[in-house]
């Protein structure tokens, strides 16, 4: 057994209805993929927000560097483990 104690981090993508793309909704911790999918259902679809769930272990996601000033960044740091939540802007602000 490894010394790792914390369950791995997973990124969750949900298709909210047929015909739409899967959209990144957040992340969670799970010991395995099966559990990650179940957790995603419990965490991110408590109000029936989805018809399909993808989970990807965060360490398997590689991200591009931000457009601006790419040259200034440490280019080695492209593992997204530290940076799982990205992209897209909230749509619902007006309803609050």
């Amino acid at each position: 057994m490894s010394h790792q104690k914390e369950w791995p981090l997973w990124e969750v993508f949900i298709r909210s209805k047929q015909g739409l793309d899967h959209k990144h909704v957040g992340s969670l911790h799970a010991a395995d993929a099966e559990m990650a999918i179940q957790n995603a259902r419990d965490v991110y679809t408590r109000r029936m927000e989805g018809v399909s769930i993808w989970v990807v272990e965060s360490r398997n996601i590689h991200a591009s560097n931000p457009d601006e000033s790419a040259a200034f960044f440490d280019p080695a740091n492209d593992k997204v483990y530290r940076h799982p939540t990205f992209y897209e802007v909230p749509a619902e602000i007006k309803n609050m």
């Binding site: 914390e6 969670l28 940076h83």
Partner: peptide, 22 residues
């Protein structure tokens, strides 16, 4: 239960800054 969910969303947001939930 929602509060557990909210805690989870927020831990996730903080984790993007390089701090683990543990």
């Amino acid at each position: 239960q929602d509060e557990a969910g909210h805690g989870l969303y927020l831990y996730s947001a903080a984790e993007t800054l390089g701090t683990s939930r543990d």
